[in-house]
């Protein structure tokens, strides 16, 4: 695998060629005054200088709504397996780390072919952050930079990108970039400087402990007043779930076609903050209180999911929930810091 340098102009020509090919290309583009991942039809629309996207790129591995199977009503069903290939352009390190976690969660134990097929059909071109968003705290979560999961990592250094091919798929794309030269020591030093800058700058909310301490911290916080104090203002809208790159809970629903004879079983995003998330038949709700649902999300990020993936903390510090929360209560750093400041930790 190679580490090369291309000018931004040369990279744009590469993207233009990619867009003109029969590949499905998805990249970050401006959407009003924000940014979003979407199908790329014009290389000029690609914005690798974006701060953060409204939704994380998980929607390409776990779409908001996807068909699991087609069926005959009250009869047999046939599996729907996605097979569309895609190049995903502009994944930030924190989102890359979130994707790596989901890859583990969907492949461990019972192997989820729907997620994994989509994932395996995606070539990821990640990029280091150029502009910090107003609520990012990736540095606090050790996810300001990443070193695995992508096929290519781009780092903007002045008028050029350092292009790090990490897989054969990535190398094949780099081989298509005309003008790519082996990166010089000076280029690599500039890349190092970008990483150092991001580790310092992507920290608008500063967690007062190492993220690896969170599972231990939460062992002592179950009855902390912070859950009630914050959840008092919670609208149970689930926005924090919907924008989170590591939330992957889903519901499954059957949709019947107009012929009333056939249909599709779909899965759709769900959220543990929504009132009826844990309601069973007969209307018994096992997590009825807002504070209990609020606590559940932060325990999932800091303790429960880490227990399934070797201690990796399931908050990557993208800051999207901080921005999305109408009541301004979702900030994980504020919650964890409050617990840190008020809990006896021996």
């Amino acid at each position: 695998m190679s580490v090369s340098t291309v000018t931004k102009e040369q990279f744009k020509s590469f993207v233009a060629a990619l867009v003109d090919s029969d590949q499905n290309v998805v990249g970050v583009q401006a959407k009003d005054d924000k940014f979003a991942f979407g199908e790329l039809t014009d290389a000029n629309a690609l914005r690798l200088d974006y701060d953060v996207t409204i939704l994380p790129p998980k929607k390409y591995m776990l779409p908001q709504r996807e068909a699991l199977m087609n069926f005959e009503v009250a009869g047999a069903a046939e599996s729907v397996q996605p097979d569309e290939k895609m190049v995903l352009l502009g994944v930030h390190p924190y989102d890359m780390i979130a994707i790596n976690q989901m890859d583990e969660l969907f492949s461990q134990g019972e192997y989820d072919t729907h997620y994994m097929n989509r994932r395996n059909n995606i070539t990821i071109i990640a990029c280091d952050v150029v502009t910090d968003s107003k609520n990012v705290f990736a540095a606090s979560m050790n996810s300001a930079t990443c070193d695995t999961g992508y096929d290519i990592l781009l780092t903007a250094i002045g008028d050029a990108y350092v292009v790090d091919a990490a897989t054969d798929k990535g190398q094949a794309l780099v081989d298509m970039m005309s003008g790519a030269n082996e990166a010089t020591d000076a280029d690599l030093k500039k890349r190092e400087a970008v990483h150092e800058k991001n580790i310092a700058a992507l920290n608008k909310h500063e967690l007062e402990c190492k993220p690896s301490f969170l599972p231990k911290l939460l062992e002592k916080a179950y009855d902390h007043p912070v859950w009630e104090e914050r959840a008092r203002l919670c609208y149970s809208c689930g926005s924090c779930n919907q924008v989170c790159p590591t939330c992957y809970c889903f519901d499954v629903q059957d949709e019947v076609n107009w012929d009333l004879k056939t249909g599709t079983r779909c899965r759709a995003w769900d959220g543990c903050l929504l009132t009826n998330f844990a309601t069973v038949a007969g209307d018994h709700n096992f997590r009825k209180k807002r504070a209990d649902r609020f606590r559940h999300r932060l325990y999932r990020k800091g303790k429960y999911v880490p227990g399934k993936i070797d201690g990796q903390i399931a908050c990557v510090g993208c800051g999207r929930c901080v921005t999305a929360c109408t009541a301004k209560i979702a900030n994980p750093v504020e919650v964890y810091n409050t617990i840190l400041e008020t809990t006896e930790l021996r």
């Binding site: 134990g109 019972e110 989820d112 992957y248 809970c249 889903f250 519901d251 769900d270 998330f277």
Partner: peptide, 8 residues
């Protein structure tokens, strides 16, 4: 199968 989160 331990994915959807509802029974947690």
């Amino acid at each position: 199968v331990g994915k959807c989160g509802h029974c947690q």
